[in-house]
């Protein structure tokens, strides 16, 4: 579904991603873990071109998105993204936050989008917040709305960039719960996270990144039960 070949990214002299090749299959729930500065967020942001790769080729369902001639907006419509800091639009109500993109991109008419928004909000238990503004919500509520906003575009894949890292501990659960539901429904997901429990329970594959490389990857139970690389063992011993 997403194919990455020889992806490198540097900021100035600093090489953040060093020749990464990887493939993400439909229906997979890929969880990326690793220490901060390992390049995992940059890798995720390259997948929908929020960061421009320095070199390498990324394709989405056969379309080369790193090709300057590709209509990147059309690709992004099929790849939802959820950010660490939610990035809800503070100048709009929740309903408008959710319906803006589907309506403006011509995916839905306003009435249809409103219905879709209500249905999605009901699903995450926030239907009473449709007319609230983001500033009136808690962090966990904001992140659930952000997920709903991405879902409203009916994406084929969802990218999560540390979706629970900015939340109060007691709100992490409600967001992970929504993500778990999505995973159960078969959504393709790429998740950068520090939630090892989530990685183990929901992930179909765990990637461990450090120093701009994918050092090790495996199916989660095997990955956590017997990691092979010394760096992975060291990292896991600190976080588990």
């Amino acid at each position: 579904m997403i194919d990455v070949k020889h992806l490198s990214k540097s900021f100035g002299d600093h090489l953040v991603l060093d020749d990464i090749s990887e493939h993400i299959h439909p229906g997979e729930k890929v969880v990326i873990i690793g220490p901060s500065g390992s390049g995992k967020s940059t890798f995720l942001r390259c997948l929908n071109l929020l960061e421009t790769p320095t070199s390498g080729v990324i394709s989405f369902e056969g379309t080369e998105i790193t090709d300057p001639k590709t209509d990147i907006d059309a690709i992004r419509r099929q790849m939802g993204m959820v950010f660490q800091h939610f990035n809800l639009f503070p100048n709009m109500t929740i309903r408008k936050n959710i319906t803006l993109a589907p309506v403006r991109t011509g995916l839905m008419a306003q009435a249809e989008a409103d219905d879709a928004a209500s249905a999605l909000l009901r699903r995450v238990g926030l239907e009473d917040k449709a007319d609230a503004y983001p500033a009136q919500l808690s962090g966990g509520q904001k992140q659930r709305i952000a997920i709903v906003r991405a879902l409203a575009m009916r994406p084929k894949v969802l990218l999560f960039d540390e979706p629970t890292s900015a939340l109060d501990p007691e709100m992490v659960g409600e967001v992970l719960e929504v993500m778990k539901q999505l995973a159960d429904e078969g959504m393709t997901m790429v998740v950068v996270t520090h939630e090892m429990g989530f990685a183990r329970e929901v992930g179909s594959r765990v990637l461990f990144m450090d120093g701009g490389h994918i050092l090790e990857q495996n199916e989660p139970h095997a990955f956590f039960a017997n990691p092979k690389e010394p760096r992975t063992i060291e990292f896991l011993s600190k976080v588990l």
Binding site: R76, G80, M81, T105, A150
Partner: peptide
């Protein structure tokens, strides 16, 4: 305006 706002808009496929 926080750069995340532009990123969020663009990531939804808005031009």
């Amino acid at each position: 305006v926080d750069g995340g706002q532009m990123e969020a808009g663009r990531s939804l496929g808005l031009n």
